[in-house]
Design a protein around this nucleic acid. Structure first.
Length: 957
RNA sequence: GCCCGGGUGGCGGAAUUGGCAGACGCGGGGGGCUUAAACCCCCCUGGCUCGUAAGAGCCGUGCGGGUUCAAGUCCCGCCCCGGGCACCA
């Protein structure tokens, strides 16, 4: 009987590096690592403190992944891209004398976990635990070098106890605008009592009742309950934060419509930190793209508040261009503006009411989706332009948003495109107040003129001011916007018509959700409805058990439904008797839960000291791992040394976490002013997805390609790129890859396929290239027939040794810079060379074998451990020093230099490596092929001879 | 519309401060081993033209200009793709 191929291979080379052998090696080493606690990292103090171990390790380094939601679907090969990258880097750093903190937790509260639970009918605690366990298993199989002792889940009561504690700290703090930092609310009370400052509501502290004092303090707290317009999402049955609403007015989870509604909700006063959140971006080693997104989201703009007198009292507008006030010929208020009623005249009442009703019926999407046709109505009322003294008409229009600035604008049609369009539509005057430059007219192919009826659009920019003077202010003749703004602001402040100010797009953070699967608020309400946070010894407030954990959701379009928190139903839990210091009283619990983001706002801090029962983190431990590295640079803010994750958290998680961290910094709990000193955004793994003619995704693995077209079950389908995922029916699971090649090959392929920050398409058929490399590596050291270590020779030939050291040099540099793809290419080149040596001699030089194993160890740790032990070592390779290049071996005696004639390579000559320009020139100009290439030109009278030593020579005849 | 990225062989991608374009891998071709095949090993592989051949020449990094001895890299003007923001006063 004939053997199958596999049987033959098995019989002839039973110790070949196959998927089966890889799996055996990998699972065995994973067990050894676990048993030995190989990746346990010592702290300087506390429960995980170990001074002896700490002394053995070098400089500290905190490497962090954005932790995942433990989704029920499990991992596909796209998920661990970043994790493999951080693992390789962590392992490399351990080998270059660093004490590396590297672990992984689970962001297990929130909508996805809850929706999965609702889907399966299982309690979210059960499904979450299952999912976490499954994910731990999948990540372990990848060989990630996490310190398992430090892994947390946000759903552990021991963890969310501290999430609740931080909430109480925030609640019991206020922002001191003088010192520009958060302080305990008790210090504010002390200042009110001593008279050092007075409440901003204008009342006298000593004369206020206890209840009034509480109300007054609530105006200051960094966490507060407010009745405010919020985003109500009936489809999810909860309110959501601004950051969770997409540009087209839908929820980022579930894609349901979102409606603006006034509701009583918890808010976080993140706006008080707007300046610091923008300014401290300067201190961060983050990409400009992410910084820009944060800046845009916070949306700081410098301008002025200006009051326009009217019959209904002063109308305040915010403008960034007070210099254009002379051109303000009308005003526009948002339809919801409170002064509209008072301004509207009787004969305009009907049309105003009609317009306001129409605007109210539209949600934000429709208002923005508009074809940009300007609509609006005249209120009949007028206001006084403080600079010109003219009476100008007041309109309402939905292009002015109540949610930004003051909800009212002064319209300068000649200098603002929106106002220009509005004025054109309704035939309002457009006087020019600047003389646009000649070029501006030329570009628009019109004659220069101050008659704006010839202008196609508004003019925005620096230009000479005209018609801009009154008896006490004269801008005419100025030509820079900044000068004119300064002059106008000064005038406005002197005359009491306004003042320069800063406006932000950022709103306070809506912090409560009407869901079940989240952290309960550590808050109770007394009989007067005042909120009290619970003292430390009553934490955690454990999420109560219930079968009815699913929230009430509504028809997604039912704007007028009301949220109904699942916790509301648990009256036995809601109503309690407590002694909060003034005897046993009846209280009512808060029935909201915190948003998904709460747990991820501080998890990196808990990794530092995960088992500390006394504090959320020991300050000594925090300062060791996250304290400012002023030795690196004087303005280093402290924080995680390397944070790797996707760009999708640019404004959500990263903004919230920075805010919480800054509060904790202000209150003295942490020494770092930023949580993440360096951020690296990894790319995504993309995969082909295919749609049939109904636009439905078909199984990508059953699609056939013929003549540049794609077919599924005989029908042509269209190809598109997408993130890998279940919904696109193109997910490849890591288990398939383990089965075919093992985890080391998967790790290597993901690192080799491109730079870590680039998205790239997955190609299963390419994976085999990395598998072949590992097979060859294995074969250079292991005899496939016997499994024995190949014979070692004591010395390498000169060429091999030089190549080895050049490789070490490059691999170190590339690993350090997270360019694992190029490091791998160099290692393959070295291995290809070594394969030739081994083929010729049947032995491998010991120094080469050792260095190669050490260099691949961060990338493919299992095969490296196995080879390392075959080479006679008994200890793990994890903490062995990474090879260092011998500088003398990096320079050659002779180098080949290309010789160009007029920039084109015509010849190559060998020159001594240390030759200077003179010597090189002499050698080059006496070379036969060079003379030939010069084609008869006289080498002694060349126009130019450019010599870049070690690079090239260029001759210009 | 504005702000970020990006565009290099059949494919994924390499290329220090401007200095030999296409490293490495996949795919493709040829050879060796084998009764045969698979595995493995060795060689070739951007396009075009000329040459029996060794080889030689020309073109070539989205398009069009420019700077330079020299441009994938720098400058100007466009086109396309991906992402973010979007009536923000």
């Amino acid at each position: 009987m004939e053997d199958s191929n596999e049987q033959q291979v098995e019989r002839l080379t039973p110790f070949r590096y196959t998927a089966e052998l890889a799996t055996e090696i990998e699972t065995r080493w994973q067990d050894i690592w676990d048993v030995n606690g190989t990746f346990d990292t010592p702290n300087p103090a506390g429960p995980l403190g170990d001074q002896a171990a700490l002394d053995d390790r070098g400089e500290k380094l905190f490497i962090l992944d954005m932790f995942p939601y433990p989704s029920g679907a499990g991992l596909h090969v796209g998920h661990p891209l970043g994790y493999i990258g951080t693992d390789v880097y962590s392992r490399f750093k351990r080998m270059t004398n660093h004490n590396v903190l590297y672990t992984m937790g689970f962001d297990a509260f929130g909508l996805p976990a809850e929706q999965y639970a609702v889907q399966t009918g299982q309690h979210p605690a059960i499904t979450t635990n299952d999912n976490v366990a499954n994910m731990r298993r999948q990540l372990r199989r990848l060989g990630l070098s996490h310190d398992q002792r430090r892994s947390i889940s946000t759903t552990d009561p021991e963890y969310y106890r501290w999430t609740q504690w931080i909430f109480t700290q925030i609640f019991n703090s206020w922002y001191d605008t003088e010192l520009k930092k958060a302080r305990p609310i008790n210090e504010l009370i002390a200042e009110f009592e001593s008279g050092k400052q007075s409440p901003t509501n204008g009342r006298v502290w000593a004369e206020m009742s206890d209840g009034d004092k509480r109300d007054c303090l609530d105006e200051y707290r960094l966490a507060y309950v407010s009745e405010a317009p919020v985003n109500w999402c009936p489809g999810l049955g909860t309110v959501v934060a601004n950051e969770e609403v997409t540009a087209d007015g839908r929820s980022d989870r579930g894609n349901f419509p979102v409606f603006k509604r006034n509701m009583r909700q918890w808010m976080m006063r993140i706006t008080t930190y707007a300046d610091r959140l923008i300014d401290d971006l300067e201190l961060l080693d983050w990409s400009d793209a992410i910084k820009t997104m944060q800046r845009n989201w916070i949306g700081r703009s410098h301008g002025a508040h200006v009051d326009f007198d009217s019959a209904a009292g002063p109308i305040t507008v915010f403008t960034t261009r007070p210099d254009t006030l002379f051109g303000a010929t009308f005003m526009v208020l948002a339809p919801e503006h409170p002064l509209v009623d008072h301004l509207t005249t009787a004969d305009q009442a009907n049309s105003v009411a009609e317009y306001r009703a129409a605007a109210a019926a539209k949600n934000d999407i429709d208002r923005q989706d508009d074809t940009r046709e300007k609509t609006g109505v005249f209120t009949g009322g007028t206001a006084t332009n403080p600079l010109t003294g003219e009476q100008i008409p007041v309109w309402i229009a939905d292009y002015v948003l109540m949610g930004y600035g003051t909800g009212a604008i002064m319209a300068v049609p000649c200098g603002d495109q929106r106002d220009f369009e509005f004025a054109r539509t309704f035939g309002l005057a457009i006087p020019a107040i600047q003389q646009p430059p000649v070029d501006w007219f030329a570009d628009r192919e019109i004659e220069p003129s101050l008659d704006t009826s010839t202008w196609p659009e508004a003019f925005v920019g620096n230009a000479k001011y005209v018609n801009s003077a009154n008896s006490s202010l004269d801008l005419n003749g100025l030509s820079s916007v900044s000068e004119a703004v300064a002059a106008t602001n000064q005038w406005l402040e002197e005359q009491g018509y306004g003042q320069s100010t800063i406006n932000y797009k950022l709103r306070d953070w809506l912090f409560s959700r009407q869901r079940y699967w989240g952290e309960p608020f550590p808050v109770v309400y007394d009989e007067d409805g005042h909120a009290h946070t619970l003292p430390d010894d009553m934490l955690p407030v454990v999420l109560p058990e219930t079968d009815s954990f699913s929230p009430r959701t509504f028809d997604a379009d039912d704007e007028h439904s009301d949220p109904e928190s699942p916790l509301d139903r648990l009256s036995e839990w809601v109503n309690i008797e407590l002694d909060l210091g003034d005897g046993l009283r009846t209280y009512r619990r808060d029935t909201n839960v915190m948003p998904q983001w709460a747990g991820s706002c501080w998890y990196e801090l808990r990794y530092l000291d995960p088992t500390n029962a006394e504090q959320f983190v020991d300050p000594e431990v925090e300062s060791y791992w996250m304290g400012p590295r002023t030795d690196v640079r004087p303005d280093h803010p402290g924080g995680v040394d390397l944070y790797v994750g996707g760009v999708e958290h640019a404004v959500l998680h990263l903004l919230y976490a920075r805010f919480w961290h800054k509060v904790l910094f202000d209150l003295g709990f942490v020494s770092s002013k930023e949580p993440y000193a360096r951020l690296f955004n990894q790319g995504y793994i993309l995969a082909n997805a295919f749609k049939d003619d109904r636009g439905i995704y078909v199984d990508a693995f059953s699609v056939e390609e013929r003549d540049n077209a794609y077919y599924f079950e005989g029908n042509e389908v269209t190809r598109e790129w997408g993130k890998m995922g279940k919904s696109l029916k193109n997910a490849v699971s890591p288990d398939e890859m383990y089965e075919a090649y093992g985890a080391d090959t998967l790790r290597l392929y993901e690192m080799a396929m491109g730079p870590l920050d680039a998205s790239r398409p997955w190609e299963t058929r390419d994976v085999v290239g990395m598998f072949r490399f590992l097979q060859r590596l294995w074969r250079t050291m292991v005899v496939e027939e016997t499994g024995e270590l190949r014979a070692l020779s004591e010395t390498a030939d000169d060429e091999t040794r030089r190549l080895l050291h050049r490789t070490i040099d490059v691999v170190r540099t590339e690993m350090e810079a997270l360019r694992f793809n190029t490091a791998i290419a160099k290692l393959i080149e070295l291995n290809n060379h070594v394969t030739k040596v081994v083929n010729a001699t049947n032995e491998i030089p010991r120094e080469v074998a050792q260095a190669m194993v050490l260099m691949v160890a961060p990338l493919v740790p299992h095969i490296a451990e196995e080879l390392w032990s075959k080479l006679g070592n008994t200890d793990t390779i994890t903490y062995v020093g990474f090879p260092e290049a011998e500088p003398a071996l990096l320079v050659d005696d002779e180098v080949e230099m290309p010789v160009q004639v007029k920039g084109k390579v015509r010849a190559r000559v060998m020159v001594p490596a240390d030759a200077d320009e003179r010597t090189i020139t002499d050698i080059v100009l006496s070379d036969e092929r060079v003379l030939e290439a010069l084609d008869g030109a006289d080498p002694s009278s060349l126009k130019k001879v450019i010599v870049v030593p070690g690079r090239m020579v260029n001759l210009v005849p």
